[in-house]
Design a protein around this nucleic acid. Structure first.
Lengths: 179, 179, 179, 179
DNA sequence: CATGAATGAGTCTTCATTCAT
DNA sequence: GATGAATGAAGACTCATTCAT
């Protein structure tokens, strides 16, 4: 129930007061602390849930059997699907609040796993030029995904679902300035 | 002088107290309000300065005469240079504090201008496939740039300067999963 | 059962929470109030028990038939024995928590009864000089006893049992600075 | 000014609210924290002051040149004088609040210094029988003094000044049950 | 009788902002 | 302009107590 106060975190970040969350859930201020040790505690619970859900979707989307490039579109579709179903989570996951250090790392690792895993194979097959650094690449990918998802989740009427997927896919396969 | 309290915003975001800023600048707490209406006021001043500086560098880096693709590397170099010289600014510009709405838009517009301007020409010349949406593209670009710059500015020893530039360039020209 | 939460009062005074006491007794928080009206109520119950026990021991130790001086050592022995068997009580009885006003008086009366009772006889027999005020004397005695007992009960290895008794006895019979 | 909120500590111990102290001193709640880091901070300041003052008086009262017994009455007079002038301090010094551990030790050491110092000489001269343990003795003395002072400071009309001094002196020189 | 979630008043502490000097 | 003490509205968290089950 109180977890529905996730809406508040999504909108205002960690700045929401415990009183507001409690009020929003129609319980007294003290009740909050019967369920969560801390404001940070609730935040962590919500965050963990979000990470788990996103993780699940990504796992389902990627198929190691397929080549790296073949996975690009399914992953993009998974991300857009996630943004559609859990707009709240998007804001929470990619916000940069003080305590998120751990989460941030978790999310990044999650998103970048596909990249890192694929890299070994790619280098072997000479698919990925060594000039592309794995660390920089994963930062770039996560930044790209996070921003687009946030932007789109904020107001999905900004672009058709398909356009977002298509653009993300093409960027990854051919670059932002394809030649 | 007080603006040197920019260091504090960079490190702690809007959470720094006016007292801390004043102390850091070796003036009394009240003096702050002789120069700035608000804490937000100072933040805006600093932010505007950062936007202006970044804007200047990007303008110098991009040459409309050259083709779009030819501008990719110079722009990447400009960004990395900016991150080198103004690590403070990076954190301030791309943090997502409540009041930054306006700034955020400004920064995005700034970074995306190159994309948008080029798009007209590109379409004309058939360089950019219409499946790539301009709005999604600019969000993706900004997200990518912002995250990589933040990540690198935090600790430049994470990757050699050249590697960052090279990777950013290649991603834009050929994608993250080049075929 | 819950009264075993006496250990908590002994260690932390009235600051222990009703929840802690209930938890320590392996019952639910609400159960506390099925047995006691108040936190103060439980405290009073425990306190009364302690007073009764101390009272019993002192009554057994003192023998009106003997002279006042002859009772000094038995009383000291009784006190030390009490401290040995009920270290918990010592802290509770002589702590100065807000609500203890009543208890405090009871304890003092208890300890001082021997003094007061004896005084009549003493004056008659000219044993006690009138310059020694009965009220001041009983305060002094209780203060002395209470502190020594608390100090010793906290860690009985601080001095051998016999030494405590002997010193207390000698002080009462001959003063702290005997001539 | 706020230190006049010493009266509150004396009456209610550490349980007084910072708001109450501030209100009592006719300042706003926040002002408290411009002068003291903590509630504990103020308590410590007051406590240190009290210890220093008591220490000063005891030093002036005792004269090492005189014999131990000759110092008993002057010390008693000093204590009573202190209780007269600083009734507030008495309650604070001898209360057993959680944080007072350090103070408690300081006070005890202070009061017991006379005992300990004298003991060496006494044993040498065979004045004090070895059956009287120095540790137990100092606890007893401090307990006696503290309680009598507290009791009398609470309401000095309970006994004439002279009676308190006389009784304390006689107890120390000849015991509570003189023979 | 037991339970334990809910309550909400109360407490400490912080901090943006003001203003008399 | 500079100062820095004062302000007081919040906010996080605690805990004695109640009450429906």
């Amino acid at each position: 129930l109180i977890e529905s106060g996730r809406a508040l975190f999504a909108e205002h970040g960690l700045r929401v007061t415990t009183h507001d969350i409690a009020a929003h859930a129609d319980v007294a201020a003290g009740t909050f602390y019967n369920h969560f040790k801390d404001k940070a505690d609730l935040f962590r619970v919500i965050t963990d849930e979000a990470v788990a859900e996103l993780s699940r979707r990504l796992r389902e989307a990627g198929d190691p059997e397929r080549g790296l490039r073949a996975n690009v579109r399914p992953v993009a579709e998974a991300l857009v699907g996630f943004a559609e179903d859990h707009a709240d989570f998007i804001h929470i996951l990619f916000s940069r609040e003080a305590t998120t250090a751990t989460t941030e790392a978790a999310v990044l690792d999650l998103l970048a796993q596909d990249v890192r895993q694929g890299r070994a194979a790619s280098i072997e097959r000479g698919e990925m030029p060594p000039e592309i650094d794995a660390m920089v690449l994963s930062q770039a990918l996560v930044g790209m995904w996070a921003r687009v998802m946030e932007w789109w989740a904020e107001d999905p009427s900004r672009a058709p679902r398909e356009t977002v997927i298509e653009t993300l896919t093409r960027i990854q396969l051919g670059g932002t300035h394809p030649g």
